[in-house]
Design a protein around this nucleic acid. Structure first.
Lengths: 111, 111
DNA sequence: TTCAATACATAGTAACACTATGTAATGATG
DNA sequence: CATCATTACATAGTGTTACTATGTATTGAA
């Protein structure tokens, strides 16, 4: 559908954006991104989990296992202060990038 | 300024977009992208030239050396029919991607 | 009973663009 | 007059990122 290379680099913004609302677990995020994007974004687990681990390594999020009696254990993620700052930075970068792309796509002479 | 990973995957669209207007040479495209994007995009030669070669290999553009008496030779690029079709496809993909990202960035509950 | 869904995980790989470097000419700056 | 910036091309090597493929384990539906 959409060339993955176009999406590359934007997935971590999406994850931080989701976690800015509430704590979530990996599998839930995948479903939520499908829902929120109207089926445009649907990531495989092999794509999302490594990204979560990297974000945690950078200190933007941290994880905890839920301690309910559920059989299937869920690993929840929570955004940190550093993560919130990073999200804000990435949001600004996305705006700049997106607006610049519109200028290019709008054309030069035939604008 | 902007994380390169965000831009990755979008550079070939920009190049095709420029060439949709008129034939251009590599160095000229770099300057033109700086201008059209209001200094947001400024690529090094080491970034652009390999992309041009790849686009040519795929048949989306073709090149010719200008035959004027200039000392510094310029290699001009021209977009092909296949390139025009590819540009159209990539433009649509960018629209889908961009709109989906806005939905995510717009937030879930606090929209 | 077999498949789909839930829920995690990672080793290996491919794609992409960047860094660094090189050539070669001209004009500006100190 | 020497050195730097600009013009204009080129590529080998590298790093980042995410995808493919695979694996484990449970539950519920077909």
């Amino acid at each position: 559908m959409i060339d993955r290379e176009l999406i590359k680099g934007s997935i971590s913004i999406m994850v931080l954006e989701l976690l800015a609302d509430k704590d979530m677990y990996g599998y839930e995020m995948i479903k939520e991104l499908v829902r929120r994007s109207n089926n445009v974004f649907s990531f495989k687990e092999g794509t999302l989990y490594p990204i979560l681990h990297t974000l945690e390594k950078h200190g933007y999020i941290f994880s905890y296992w839920e301690d309910t009696a559920l059989v299937r254990k869920r690993k929840y993620y929570h955004i940190t202060d550093a993560g919130t700052k990073e999200l804000e930075k990435k949001r600004n970068q996305w705006r700049m990038f997106s607006e610049a792309m519109e200028l290019i796509l709008g054309g030069g002479s035939h604008a």
